Simulated assay, not measured.
Amino acid sequence: MFPELKDKIVLVIGSSQGIGKAVVETFLDNQAKVIAADIAYDFIELHAVSPKYFQTHLDISQEAEVLALSQQLINTNLVPDIVVDVAGISTMDFLVESKTSDFDKTYQVNTRGAYLAAKYFTNAMIAHGKKGRLIMIASQAGKNGYRGMAAYVASKHAVLGLVKTLAIETAANQILVNAVCPGIIETEMKQRERVEGGALRGLSAEEIRQEDISQVPLGRTGTPQDVANVVLFLASPLASYMTGQALNVTGGMTMH
């Protein structure tokens, strides 16, 4: 628990399931004021679930929606102290057989979405004098290559480039920008990837799962909470001298 996070305003983008849901719950446990934004929510205006928990619709790939949410947060005195961008999608296919439309769709959410979130919410922080934190959920796919995932791999490499650049540009404003690079995390998206990736390779989803486990030195795949714990660390006073970093949460699978 970090008492310093009490009543801090935390915007979590991509929050309805998996890692995003765990991040929301972790900040609520630390008594922060959390705004959960996700394409799955119907509320265009902020919907108060409780005095410290709000939900709102957001398609992170749409600039008009990101701008509108940024303005809404300014108008309601809810400019975030911490922004966590978890939103991401993946497609499965070998590069030479893949659809250009799938590549474009993945980039729209994973990379363009990260760019838009960084641009508008960081601008709001700067305009209101907030010495904030921006935390991007990238992936170990931002450091390695993986068969059947060219669009996802490329998009997450690009996210790390955005993080490194923005960290330099906002250092004078004392806004810290970092990334978390999860490995194999047990989420709905990972379960779908095993089915689709297995079909590409002639393997069952269970065979892919066993292969996943075999690649992790710690002998298990990760949980959304494993990732949320590192997000919490980056948002806490313990990480006050860190910016431009990409922290692995991979059980030792990726070590660079």
Rank of each mutant, 00 (worst) to 15 (best):
M1I: 08
P3R: 06
D7Y: 04
V10Y: 02
V12D: 02
I13P: 06
S15R: 06
S15Y: 04
I19C: 04
V23G: 03
T26L: 13
A32W: 05
K33V: 06
V34Y: 03
A40H: 14
I44H: 14
E45I: 05
L46F: 04
L46E: 03
H47S: 11
H47K: 12
V49M: 11
S50D: 11
Y53N: 13
T56F: 05
Q62V: 14
Q62G: 06
A64P: 01
E65P: 00
E65S: 08
E65L: 07
L78S: 07
D81A: 04
S90L: 11
S90F: 00
S90A: 15
M92P: 07
V96F: 11
E97K: 15
F103L: 07
D104H: 09
Y107C: 03
Q108L: 06
T111C: 09
G113Q: 00
A118F: 08
K119Y: 12
M125Q: 08
A127G: 05
A127H: 10
R133T: 13
L134V: 11
I135D: 01
I137S: 05
G142Q: 01
G148H: 04
A151R: 07
A151G: 01
Y152N: 00
Y152H: 00
A158Q: 03
V159K: 00
V163N: 00
T165S: 14
A167G: 15
I168H: 11
L176V: 12
L176R: 13
E186G: 02
R194N: 11
V195I: 15
V195F: 10
G198L: 07
L200F: 06
R201W: 08
R201V: 12
G202P: 07
L203Q: 10
S204I: 08
Q210R: 13
E211P: 03
I213Y: 01
L218V: 14
G219V: 08
T221C: 10
T223R: 12
V227N: 03
V227S: 02
S240N: 15
Y241N: 10
M242F: 12
T243S: 03
T243C: 01
Q245S: 15
N248D: 14
V249S: 04
G251E: 09
G252I: 10
M253L: 14
M255W: 10
